[in-house]
Amino acid sequence: MSRSGAQAFSVGGAIGTLGGLIGLGGAEFRLPVLVGHFRFPTLEAVILNKVTSLNKVTSLAVVAASLPLRGMAIPWAAVFAQWAVVVNVLAGSLAGAWLGAHYATRMKAEWLNRVIFVLLIGLALGMLFGHDHLNGNHAGMADGTLRWIAGLVAGVGIGAVAAVLGVAGGELIIPTLVLLFGIDMKLAGSLSLCISLPTMLMAFARYRQSDAFAACGRERAFLIWMIGGSLVGSAVGAALLGSVPTDWLVWGMGVILFISAVKVFHHRH
């Protein structure tokens, strides 16, 4: 089908706006659209989703620039103080990202569709029923060898899921930091950036070895338009933040993700 720049920009803008409203990159919503609406083969869609998600570099720069201005809300000292936690989870997520991308490029298309279907349904259910559990204070697991192993294992899972779906993984990293390490949710959002970007780059490096990576060059104009729309949409979403109750947004996005997963990937089995 025809993939016009206007379509890519408008879809990217809509997804970016929704992602900006709920604090996610929107890649989990973009993947079903790339497959279902724009008719990309699944592996190509995953890689294109990963490339589009790398516009988070821009978001990172914005967040980094704004952190010093946020006063005591998220001071740099608080971020740096958690370096051991970042290293713990990141060590696992880098390995998981490489393994996830490696097996994604070797799976048959029908099996990749099944894996993505299950993962998207899991994310949708987590969004629908797990959000409330992140509110309030969490003690986390006691510091020690067991927590280090748990963080490493969780990181491997996060990296693998992020690689297979082509997402940044913040929707998995933040709950892990809050529930396992007892980190405040706002601080966890900042720390997740320190983990997600290297994880994305690791998966991206592995996907470069795949024949499907050629889609990035072939669809360069499409990617540019979609990234541009995503950036504009993210800004709009951030500007509208607070205009709609967060719980409504999370539930709404969970329903959309669930329906999208069933509609697109269930029928591709």
Rank of each mutant, 00 (worst) to 15 (best):
V86Q: 01
V86N: 00
L257S: 02
K186H: 15
F80Q: 12
L223K: 01
L54F: 11
L146D: 11
A239D: 08
G159Q: 08
Y207A: 03
L257V: 03
E219C: 01
M1I: 12
N55M: 13
V46R: 01
A6F: 15
V262R: 05
T145A: 15
V118N: 07
W83S: 12
V51L: 12
G166P: 03
V33E: 05
V79C: 06
G36C: 09
A261P: 07
T17Q: 05
V11C: 09
R3M: 07
L180H: 08
G229W: 00
L223G: 00
A212Q: 12
V264I: 11
I224Q: 08
A235W: 12
V85H: 05
L240V: 14
G126V: 04
F265S: 00
V85Q: 04
T42G: 00
M141E: 02
P41H: 09
V57I: 15
V153Y: 09
V153N: 10
G136I: 02
I116N: 02
T58R: 07
S53L: 09
R268W: 06
T42A: 04
P198C: 08
A84R: 14
M185V: 15
F213W: 07
T42N: 02
T246S: 12
R114F: 12
I22D: 07
L172Y: 05
A97R: 02
A235Y: 14
D143T: 13
I116L: 09
H269W: 15
H266M: 11
I116E: 03
I158T: 04
V153C: 11
L60E: 06
A84M: 10
P198K: 10
L193Y: 11
A160P: 00
L240T: 11
V63N: 11
T199K: 01
H138K: 06
S234F: 12
E44D: 09
A8K: 08
V236K: 08
S243E: 10
S196K: 04
R39L: 15
M202L: 08
G182C: 02
M226R: 04
F117P: 00
V156H: 06
I195G: 03
L177M: 14
W76I: 10
A14T: 15
K186L: 08
I47C: 04
L172I: 10
G71I: 07
S59T: 13
H138S: 07
G144L: 10
E171A: 12
I158M: 04
V85C: 04
C216P: 00
F38G: 02
V63G: 04
S59M: 13
M1Q: 10
T58V: 15
I158A: 03
L18W: 05
S234I: 11
